[in-house]
């Protein structure tokens, strides 16, 4: 399954429980909202009711965390079926997930675990992605994760891996600028080298988020803080390369009042309009 995803320019936020009431009460100054797909799959009641009401006001992007594209065991067909049902209901701008694996049969980590960047892993991800795109009947966006562990058997860089993946599978890319920054510190590479290697016509969305300091100089992608100055600067570089695309701010912990996130989104608008 290949297909086209038209560029969409806009600025959005993740739909988090803390802000459901605000989104239900009034239209908010966002161009789209991004949902975590799994929060609305195989469920009903108030969660689905809320999503339906928000969908009437805003375009929705579905962002998944459990597809496990890097699993050599293949994808969970029941999961894909549930995801397809939700996508058919929501008619999102697009669906995305991560370049990662999330577990082995019988044991799920509920985390975005890192892959060795090898030909074997590339084959697995391409096969899984092709299957997912066939079942979902649309191309997907694949996001670069933050990582804290590198594998000695890797023969490709992360950006080479992503470039080949996009070429071979027809997928698009969700560029998480914070993740590029976090991984560049953790694995000591130049984040601009990463950006330069990403095919310009495949990026449809950018994620921004905050991170925190971990042990031994490692940064952790915690989504619990405002976007930092270094990431804003990298974002301006990314916009210069990849616009037009959608920009979204992620906050999953220490979630502040909606007004604070809307103000941060205004910062993104400002950075996107400034020369890098």
């Amino acid at each position: 399954m290949t297909g086209e995803i038209a560029p969409f320019t806009g600025f959005g936020l993740g739909l988090r429980k803390e802000h459901h009431a605000a989104f239900l009460a009034a239209e908010q100054p966002v161009d789209f909202v991004e949902i975590i797909s799994e929060n609305f799959m195989a469920c009903g009641g108030r969660p689905l009711h809320t999503l339906g009401a928000v969908r009437e006001r805003h375009p929705v992007i579905m962002h998944g965390v459990s597809m496990s594209l890097g699993s050599p065991h293949g994808l969970d067909r029941d999961y894909l079926a549930e995801l397809k049902m939700l996508a058919d209901r929501v008619s999102p701008l697009w669906l995305s997930d991560h370049l990662c694996w999330t577990g082995v049969p019988g044991h799920t980590a509920h985390d975005l675990l890192p892959l060795p960047y090898t030909d074997e892993a590339l084959e697995s991800v391409i096969a899984n992605l092709r299957l997912a795109q066939d079942v979902l009947e649309r191309p997907l966006l694949v996001e670069n994760p933050s990582s804290y562990h590198a594998f000695p058997e890797s023969t490709l860089s992360e950006w080479e891996f992503l470039r080949i993946l996009a070429e071979e599978s027809g997928c698009y890319l969700l560029l998480d600028v914070n993740n590029v920054f976090v991984s560049s510190v953790n694995h000591r590479f130049d984040p601009l080298e990463f950006l330069d290697a990403i095919p310009r016509d495949r990026v449809r969305q950018i994620h921004l988020a905050g991170h925190s300091q971990g042990p031994e100089g490692l940064l952790i992608d915690t989504h619990d803080a405002p976007v930092c100055a270094e990431v804003w600067a990298l974002y301006a570089q990314a916009v210069e390369r990849f616009a037009p695309c959608a920009t979204m701010i992620e906050r999953d912990d220490a979630v502040p009042p909606l007004g604070e996130l809307l103000a941060e989104l205004d910062q993104a608008r400002s950075h996107a309009s400034l020369p890098a």
Binding site: H110, D111, L113, Y148, A150, G214, E216, L218
Partner: peptide, 16 residues
């Protein structure tokens, strides 16, 4: 086995 693996372990436990 490494500080990075400690981060993954902490995240696993904390999330659950």
């Amino acid at each position: 086995s490494s500080p990075g693996m400690a981060i993954y372990r902490n995240a696993y436990r904390a999330r659950l």
